[in-house]
Every structure is written in C-alpha cells, then in structure tokens.
C-alpha cells in the first residue's frame, strides 16, 4: 500500500519528464518536405533570359542536378551564392527558379560573369513556387537523373551540409544512373 503511494506518483512524474525530454529534443522550426521521393512537380514559366522561351519541369530533368530557388531581394541567397559558384565550377548542374523578383533586379544580382545557374525559370508570382512547396528563399532540391526529388534543403546551403549530405548524395545518384 505504502509502496503504491510512492511508486504511482513517481512513475507519473517520470512519464511526464520523459515527455518533456522528448519535446525538448524536437525542433518546432523543422519543416517537413513531403515532396522528397516524388517526381519534380510540373510547371510552365518564361525563361528568365528570354520571355519567348518556355521552361517546364522537363528542362530540369535528365541528369543529376540541383534546383535552387533564389531572389535578388534575398540576402541569404547572396551569401549562399559563392558556394553555388563553386559547385558550378565543379561541373554540377544547377537549375533555378527566380522567385518573386523582377528581371532588372535579378539581372543586377547575377551580373554577367557571376551566374552559377544552367537554367533560370522566371517565377514572379510564385506560381511554380507553390507547386514545389517553396517556403522561403533560398531553397535547394536535389533531383536524380529520372527527375525524382531526392533531397530538399530549406534555407541556405553551407559547407558542412554540402560535405555531409549533398555531395555524397550527388555522388551516389551519379553512380546509380543507368
């Protein structure tokens, strides 16, 4: 009887502390990415450089590639850009969405010899952004050669993430390519 009187509250308190502990370990800011494992969503946009040219998801598909979402008003993108330049120098294909931007501003952002992107789709109204589940710039997806989304990073890339997650994944996807 006495044992129960001590044991029961003890177990209850431990259970609650356990819940708190698990709760502390959770990151409320971690955002889910339901698109990972799914095919690249369809879209149809003007090319950034030529309004006459239409770009669709087919232009992003064919080889292992990154898809980066950026805007000239996005300071974090500007900070991420040298990293993308380095990736492009290493021969990694980077497609992109220019998100909620104007051509003039974005053109200044790129400046002529400072463009890491193979393809730029112009998305001034965030239409494709919604299809791709974009939260906020910058965001980066990894597509495999068949056009499946294999990875998504919300927020800027950094050297650690590149070395530990993105580059090994790209190497693996290149290896499994038919």
């Amino acid at each position: 009887m006495k044992l129960r009187r001590v044991l029961l509250p003890l177990v209850a308190v431990l259970a609650i502390l356990g819940l708190f502990y698990v709760g502390l370990g959770m990151d409320a800011r971690e955002l889910p990415s339901p698109l990972v494992g799914k095919p690249a969503p369809a879209f149809e946009l003007e090319s950034f450089f030529d309004p006459e040219v239409t770009i669709t998801e087919a232009d992003f598909i064919g080889e292992v590639a990154l898809v980066n979402v950026w805007a000239s008003w996005c300071v974090t993108c500007l900070r991420e850009k040298p990293l993308l330049m380095e990736l492009a120098r290493q021969g990694i294909t980077i497609h992109s969405f220019n998100y909620r931007d104007t051509r003039a501003d974005a053109m200044r952002y790129l400046s002529r010899d400072n463009n890491p992107y193979t393809t730029i789709a112009f998305d001034p109204d965030g239409d494709a952004g919604l299809e791709w589940g974009v939260y906020a710039t910058p965001e980066t997806y990894v597509l495999d050669a068949r056009g499946m989304i294999r990875y998504k990073r919300i927020g800027p890339l950094n050297a650690k993430i590149l070395e530990e997650e993105v580059l090994p994944l790209i190497a693996r996807l290149e290896a499994e390519k038919p």
């Binding site: 955002l31 889910p32 990415s33 339901p34 698109l35 969503p41 919604l130 299809e131 791709w132 589940g133 939260y135």
Partner: peptide
C-alpha cells in the same frame, strides 16, 4: 496543399 507542404 498537403501534398506540397505536408500535414503541417
């Protein structure tokens, strides 16, 4: 929307 942004 759930397909793109999750249950969240």
């Amino acid at each position: 929307l759930v397909q793109r942004y999750g249950d969240y």
